[in-house]
Amino acid sequence: MRPVFVVDPKRCVACMACVAACSIEHGVLFTLAKSDPEAWPQTQRLRTWVSWIEREEPRPRRTFMPLLCFHCQDTPCERVCPTRATYKTPEGVVLINKDKCIGCAYCIIACPYGARYKVKAGDLEKAKKTFNMKEVEERYSKTELRIKLFKPPVPNEWATAERAVDKCTLCYHRKELGEWIPSCVEVCPTKARMFGDLDDPNDPVAELVRSGKAKQLRPDLKTEGLVYYVR
């Protein structure tokens, strides 16, 4: 299988269901995130995020831009990782071996797409106690309900772990469970996020790539990622 991830920004309504689903799946630091339109996974410390772009010309409009790791095939983060903690699967998915990651952050520097971030010691504990919505904090801060806002990750070797760098895995652990669909794709109500197989000639998602309707961002960097955007 050759996985391909296609994003159609015109369909995205920024409901953030993808961000929530990813946080629930991986136990990332959603409760520490701030609602920031000008952000990337790196700056939000989330595996995926939806930024928005506002333009005045030719008419005022706002475009939402779902962001995640591009899973580059010419992989800058893998090349610089001094301990080989970052590696590519046979399908081309870029993953991090959390045990081997020493947290030097060289991969964060090398990633041209802002897909990686550090998870420091104590961050998960802090996330359990922090709210990103004032009204929720006021209502639940004195009750036991507050801990329900943070859910531990689905157990897998690529789940968010403290003292390591974190990034999107395209929910690779789901491949081993059978049906491989990333959690963000599964919950997207408008099908702005699509997942397909380039080896399948009848796959409509792969057809978007083959027909040239979906293109890579920053092709000048020649990193050849698995993530395409409908333009």
Partner: peptide, 26 residues
């Protein structure tokens, strides 16, 4: 200083146990 900058300073030996020859850091 470099070691203190790491998230896992105690695992820095992996730089030599599992080296990536394409990394300048090595």
């Amino acid at each position: 200083i470099l070691n203190l900058h790491l998230l896992k300073p105690e695992a820095s030996y992996l730089l030599f146990l599992s080296p990536q020859p394409r990394s300048w850091m090595l």
